[in-house]
Structures are given as structure tokens and as C-alpha cells.
């Protein structure tokens, strides 16, 4: 356990808000409630928030747990660059999205939840957190050093490296040096 990352909670809260907004919207549209166009808006807003919030951010420290199948979403969300990376943007975006939900009862709950999520995001942004994609680590292979490509110059048994330098001076040691230069074909 370390420093609290508020964005992780904000993300859970926003995702839940998205679902609640969506549910409220579906109920409002299906029931043809008074002012159902607001409900229709909420359906769209709910879906948008869910899509945006589904990919979880990488944690600053420790293991990050990705949501099931979030990879495609991560790639899409990552494509927007600083817009999705910056939590100030998210805070204001959610605050704006939630407003029309407040005009009808069915979506009020989703609206308030998203408002709370926006506040938590704001707190996260103020503390300097930002969204980082969880992507599988690419295995970086170190290029093979040049010396390994060449065949061994000395026949075994070989003395330890620190002894090798002296060899040039003494006669016996020189026997280990290969008279014919060996090269890679």
C-alpha cells in the first residue's frame, strides 16, 4: 500500500455512474417518461462514459490489474492522447455530461454519481495524477555484443580474464595465443 491514487476510485465511480446513467436512460426511454429525450441523451452519455472509463489506468506503483478484455479499449482511449490522459479534462467532461441528466427523475441518480466521480477526478488531477495505458510490456532484446559473434580466439583451458593480459610478455603463455587469426565466414 502506498500513496492513494484517487483516480483509481474515480474510475470505478465513473464506470458505475455510466452504467447507472445508462440504466436510468433505458428505463426512461422504454417507459416513455415525460421528457424522455433527456433519457435518450442519458443512454448515449452512459455508453460514452462506460467506453471511456472501461480501460483502467496503470498504477503509478505496484501491479496494475487490467479489466477483462480492456486491451482494445485501451488502444482507442490512448489514441486521443492528452485529451484522455489529463484528468482535468475528464473532471470537466464528466461535470458537463452529467448536467442534462439532472432534468428528469430517472437519470438523477446517474447524474449525481457522475458528478461525484468528476469531483474525485478533480482531486486526482490536482494531486498530479494522469491516465497511463496498461499495455503488455514489449520484450526488449539487447543486441548481441559484437565480441560474441566471433569464434573464441584461445583454445581452452582459458585463464581468467585478469590473467590474460600478461600472456603476451611471457613465452609459455604466448603458446595459448592463436597463431592463425580465426574469423567468422
Amino acid at each position: 500500500m502506498g500513496q492513494i491514487e484517487w483516480a483509481m476510485w474515480a474510475n470505478e465511480q465513473a464506470l458505475a455512474s455510466g452504467l447507472i446513467l445508462l440504466t436510468g436512460g433505458v428505463v426512461g426511454v422504454a417507459g416513455q417518461f415525460r421528457g424522455w429525450p433527456f433519457a435518450a441523451y442519458s443512454v448515449a452519455a452512459g455508453v460514452f462514459v462506460c467506453l471511456l472509463e472501461y480501460p483502467r489506468s496503470r498504477r503509478a506503483k505496484g501491479t496494475s490489474v487490467a479489466r477483462t478484455g480492456q486491451y482494445c479499449f485501451t488502444v482507442c482511449v490512448k489514441a486521443f492522447g492528452p485529451l484522455t490522459r489529463n484528468y482535468y479534462v475528464r473532471a470537466f467532461l464528466h461535470a458537463a455530461i452529467c448536467v442534462p441528466g439532472g432534468f428528469m427523475l430517472a437519470t438523477v441518480l446517474g447524474c449525481v454519481c457522475l458528478g461525484i466521480a468528476s469531483l474525485i477526478y478533480l482531486a486526482a488531477a490536482i494531486r498530479g495524477e494522469h491516465w497511463e495505458p496498461i499495455l503488455p510490456k514489449k520484450e526488449t532484446r539487447k543486441p548481441v555484443p559484437e565480441s560474441i559473434k566471433n569464434p573464441p580466439q584461445n583454445p581452452p583451458p582459458r585463464p581468467p580474464p585478469e590473467m590474460r593480459r600478461k600472456r603476451v610478455d611471457d613465452v609459455e603463455g604466448a603458446a595459448y595465443d592463436n597463431p592463425v587469426p580465426v574469423t567468422d565466414e
Binding site: 500500500m1 492513494i4 491514487e5 483509481m8 476510485w9 470505478e12 465511480q13 458505475a16 447507472i20 483502467r56 498504477r59 505496484g62 490489474v65 441518480l109 449525481v112 454519481c113 461525484i116
Partner: peptide, 19 residues
Amino acid sequence: TLALILIITSSMEVIRRSY
């Protein structure tokens, strides 16, 4: 209901274990 939602979102495995 709001209280319940906040309780639930903050008790998800990832939050509970890490923060």
C-alpha cells in the same frame, strides 16, 4: 442509494487491496 453506490465503488478489489 448514493451512499450505497459510493460504498460499493470504493470496496472493489483493486481499491480495497491498494488503497
